[in-house]
Amino acid sequence: MTAAGYLAVDSGGSGLRVAVGVPGRAPSAQRETREPVRTGARGIDPGHLMIQLAPLARELAARAGVTELGTAVIGAAGFATLGDALRAELPRALARELGVTRVALAADAVTAYAGALGTRPGAVLAGGTGLIAIGTDLTAWRRADGWGHLLGDCGGGAWIGRAGLEAALRAHDGRDGGSGPLLRCAEKRFGPVRELPGRLYPRTDRPAVLASFAPLVAECAAHDPVAAGI
């Protein structure tokens, strides 16, 4: 295959999913990372995104036999409220590093909708590390939640993990609503829970860390009513 291709990127709370292919065909090469793009005072960090994306895109293009990446489509979690730096800097960075001439930037919920329903009216529930419901009648859009791990994303992976850790800490303190099984899982996963704030709060990938506890909450749900309630 020797043709101009596309670069498709899903940037979520737990890392990147990247695909390369040619228009009209399924992606020829795909990979995932487990390092989420940093978010700081300027919102989503375009420099950190490019540090991860550029070498991966070149590798996938070589594997796919794509000689030119003419178009890049990027769906980024938090883009609607934290995407100003991406809008300002990412198109130039993609052109400089990868030769991309056309760029589409959108919230990951919008790209999820396009992937699921295309140009039809409807609604999509996009759940992963975060969670958002989005729908359109093709004249207007409506959304519910998607407010991030501190303010919402109710039912997403980070929310489940946080609720599980809260129940573990309640058990540690002897408060109502605690779960001994979740406390044991938390200490096995993270070490002594009294050290958990120091391990968690300084990190820039807190949603991914919280979401990493969600599978353990699901495992405990089979025999623990607190976990089942979560």
Rank of each mutant, 00 (worst) to 15 (best):
A80Q: 11
I134T: 12
A93C: 11
A227E: 01
L216M: 04
A112D: 06
L196I: 13
R175V: 10
V110N: 05
C220D: 06
A228C: 14
E35M: 09
A76T: 10
G43K: 02
L90Q: 00
H48W: 08
A168F: 10
L182V: 01
L131H: 05
G130H: 01
A19V: 06
A77H: 12
P207S: 06
D224Y: 02
A88C: 14
P192H: 08
R194V: 15
Q52K: 03
M50K: 00
G135F: 00
D153M: 07
R199L: 15
R92D: 15
G130C: 08
A214N: 04
I134W: 04
D45N: 02
L200F: 14
H172G: 03
G164D: 13
A19C: 08
A64G: 12
R63H: 15
L138A: 11
G178H: 10
P207L: 10
D137Q: 03
A163M: 04
G83F: 07
A222W: 05
A133F: 05
R42K: 13
H172S: 14
A4L: 01
L56M: 14
L86Y: 07
T2Q: 14
H172R: 14
R31S: 15
A62Q: 14
R58Q: 15
I132G: 09
H223F: 15
A64V: 00
E68G: 02
A64N: 04
D145L: 03
R203S: 12
L216Q: 09
F79C: 12
H149M: 12
P55F: 06
A221S: 15
G122P: 09
R120V: 10
L82S: 05
A171I: 13
R25I: 10
G128L: 00
T111Y: 05
L169T: 05
G178E: 12
I51S: 11
G177T: 01
T119A: 15
C220L: 09
G99H: 00
I132H: 09
S11I: 07
W159R: 02
A64Q: 02
G99W: 01
T111K: 11
P225I: 02
A107G: 15
A208R: 03
G13T: 08
L105S: 00
R25E: 15
P181E: 10
V209K: 11
S11K: 01
G128A: 13
R102A: 10
A107F: 04
